[in-house]
């Protein structure tokens, strides 16, 4: 008996150009520009020369653009959903609370940009000027750039493979008119892949001041963070410290504290001891943090009396201390 197969094709919508011939191997294929089908295609030359050679021509431009940025800080975590974007936003708001401090956020989570929502600027669009793309300003001294500002609708998926993501990250660094910044915070997607490597490579010459690693207390998250630490050491990024997020929960009804994500293996404290990395602090889980993020308001301003606010502010002070500011 022969099983019938309807081989529905799954086109990679972004890898085959609209004007490509029928058997186009896709621009990301090894055969791009070299396959038989490519003869006579208008894109043949571009595809054939696609293989990267020598240093990226964007590098000097990035270095020039970044020369007016004093501190570049990465917010990393191997695991998703531990609060990277929320932390980045709080950190930026805290820096920008001082009128004299110019702060920027670059959101390189291309497939799942959360920064625009968390900062309450989700419906903005990027504008181009003669000096480059203008960041979106949350307030006078807090500029943001994210792929979220470039999509026609927030429903649209960004189905991009690595090279396209790298291209956009390079544009974020060289084409965005960041101006003079005291701090540029880079919010990253989970994992240790294209986005991370690209940011590190593009900023190698300008220098990264350090990375803040975010984790939650349970082992499943910690093991991803261990991988991220290994990544930082491999590529030579200084780790400013570790933040344990969602650390304990205070019931709004009975004020009893419980652990939602139990630190079965000692949590971030143990990890910090084992790896010799400083534990910057632990932020308790407060449902109002998530709510503030959904509404795009600053948690620190809205709930100054929450224990989580105190924890955030202590961590931020410690980061400033470490940086020597």
């Amino acid at each position: 008996m022969i099983a019938t197969q309807t081989a529905s094709s799954v086109p990679d919508p972004l890898s085959v150009p609209a004007n490509a011939p029928e058997h186009c191997p896709g621009t990301e294929s090894q055969l791009a520009g070299k396959a038989e089908a490519c003869d006579g295609c208008a894109n043949q030359e571009t595809c054939a020369s696609n293989t990267p050679k020598g240093p990226d021509p964007a590098l000097p431009l990035i270095t020039a653009r970044m020369s007016t940025v004093k501190r570049k800080i990465l917010v990393l975590s191997g695991k998703g959903g531990v609060g990277k974007s929320t932390f980045t936003a709080q950190l930026a708001w805290a820096f920008a609370a001082d009128d004299q401090t110019q702060t920027g956020i670059m959101d390189v989570d291309i497939c799942g940009p959360s920064i625009p929502t968390i900062l309450g600027i989700a419906s903005e669009q990027v504008h181009a000027s003669s000096s480059g793309w203008s960041p979106i300003y949350v307030q006078d001294n807090l500029g943001v750039m994210s792929v979220g500002f470039m999509l026609p609708s927030s429903r649209d998926a960004v189905m991009w493979r690595g090279p396209k993501k790298n291209g956009l990250i390079s544009q974020f660094l060289k084409d965005v008119d960041w101006g003079d910044l005291d701090y540029l915070l880079v919010d990253t997607p989970p994992g240790t892949s294209d986005e991370h490597l690209s940011v590190v490579q593009y900023l190698k010459e300008s220098g990264i001041d350090g990375a803040v690693l975010i984790t939650t207390p349970q082992e499943v998250a910690l093991q991803d963070v261990r991988r991220e630490i290994d990544f930082c050491r491999k590529v030579g990024i200084k780790i400013l410290g570790l933040v344990e997020n969602m650390s304990g929960f205070v019931c709004p009804n009975c004020k009893g504290e419980s652990q939602i994500f139990k630190p079965t293996t000692g949590g971030a404290k143990k990890l910090a001891e084992d790896t010799g990395i400083e534990l910057l602090g632990a932020v308790p889980l407060d449902p109002r943090i998530g709510k503030s993020a959904d509404y795009g308001v600053s948690f620190l301003d809205e709930y100054p009396d929450s224990p989580a606010t105190t924890a955030y502010l202590d961590i931020i002070d410690r980061i400033k201390d470490i940086l020597g500011d």
Binding site: T192, S193, I229, D230, F231
Partner: peptide, 11 residues
């Protein structure tokens, strides 16, 4: 080693 990172790009 379980602490080893897998730093891979797309391809």
């Amino acid at each position: 080693n379980k602490g080893d990172s897998v730093v891979w790009r797309g391809p």
